[in-house]
């Protein structure tokens, strides 16, 4: 029983990380029709920048972590906004080319990160509390899981509130439904494009710093490995659906944890099978309105 609790809670924690990446992917795809392969790089850059900032205060202090999270999010947002303005916008409406550019950026940026920080993972120092576990319903849960869950829930809340109560949120929700009609109401959707990139980049950068706390290392490849699962989450949840991404993040991560434990490390396989199954039964994903 306590094993099950452990797997469930750490699964939800991992799902939190997936969601931080998938939320941006989903919003970007929903509004702009772009599959952003560079999203993992926003995460990695956020992680490195965040840790560098944290080091200035002390990586193993709460202040350092807080500063790291803020800097990670800001860096991710800035990198994403620059990407949108410099690479995506000039290719307006040419979706495949836009995807290709993000592919090129992903390949180039990971190589650059390797050049700057070396190809191998580096261990990080964490605050003492995050290295410990907490007893919860008889299971000893790593404290990082709680941190991830809390952060993902906060980000979900902030994004939902942003979409619901701000004018740009309104524009983004309308644009996901029918972008052409939004421009036909006299609204320049390109500002909203930059904005979703920035919001997605911020979530990814935040996720990057959090991932270093769970993994206990930082590496140029951490973004790419999380990105694949975030893609799967995005498709299963329904591309463009934020609640879909949230639900799918948790489902995928929990399933992965359970299968890894009970079914001889087959978590990644089960997830791929789930993706194939969902696409065959419901091509638009769990909560997607339209098939891509």
């Amino acid at each position: 029983m306590s094993t099950l609790i452990l797997l469930l809670v750490t699964g939800v924690g991992l799902g939190g990380l997936y969601f931080l990446v998938a939320s941006g992917l989903s919003l970007i795809y929903g509004l702009m029709g772009i599959l952003n392969f560079a999203h993992g790089s926003f995460l990695t850059l956020g992680a490195f920048a965040g840790l560098a900032a944290a080091s200035a205060v002390g990586q193993d202090t709460w202040g350092g972590l807080a500063l790291g999270l803020v800097v990670g999010a800001v860096t991710g947002a800035a990198a994403a906004a620059v990407t949108e303005l410099g690479l995506i916008r000039p290719l307006y409406e040419r979706h495949i080319e836009q995807v290709l550019v993000t592919v090129g950026l992903a390949l180039a940026s990971v190589a650059l990160f390797e050049g700057i920080w070396g190809p191998n993972p580096r261990t990080v120092r964490r605050t003492e509390w995050l290295t410990r576990t907490t007893e919860f319903l008889g299971a000893r849960i790593p404290n990082t899981a709680f941190l991830n869950i809390l952060a993902a829930a906060l980000v979900l809340g902030v994004i939902v509130a942003f979409l619901k109560y701000t004018r740009y949120g309104l524009i983004i929700r309308a644009g996901v439904e029918n972008r052409a009609m939004v421009t036909a109401l006299g609204i320049d959707v390109r500002t909203a494009f930059t904005l979703v990139f920035a919001v997605g980049g911020a979530a990814a950068g935040l996720g990057g710093v959090l991932a270093t706390q769970s993994l206990n290392y930082v590496s140029p490849h951490m973004g790419a490995s999380l990105l694949i699962f975030a893609f799967i989450v995005t498709v299963i949840g329904g591309m463009g659906s934020l609640p879909g991404a949230a639900v799918a993040s948790v489902v995928v991560a929990v399933l992965q944890q359970l299968a890894n434990y009970f079914l001889a490390n087959t978590g990644d396989f089960i997830v791929v099978l789930l993706l194939a199954l969902v696409l065959l039964v419901r091509p638009s994903g769990l909560m997607g309105r339209r098939a891509a």
Binding site: R167, L170, I171, R173, A174, E177, V182, L185, I187
Partner: peptide
């Protein structure tokens, strides 16, 4: 379709 009438008009 996903927006309320008021939101459609506000937009």
């Amino acid at each position: 379709a996903g927006l309320t009438v008021a939101e459609n008009l506000r937009l």
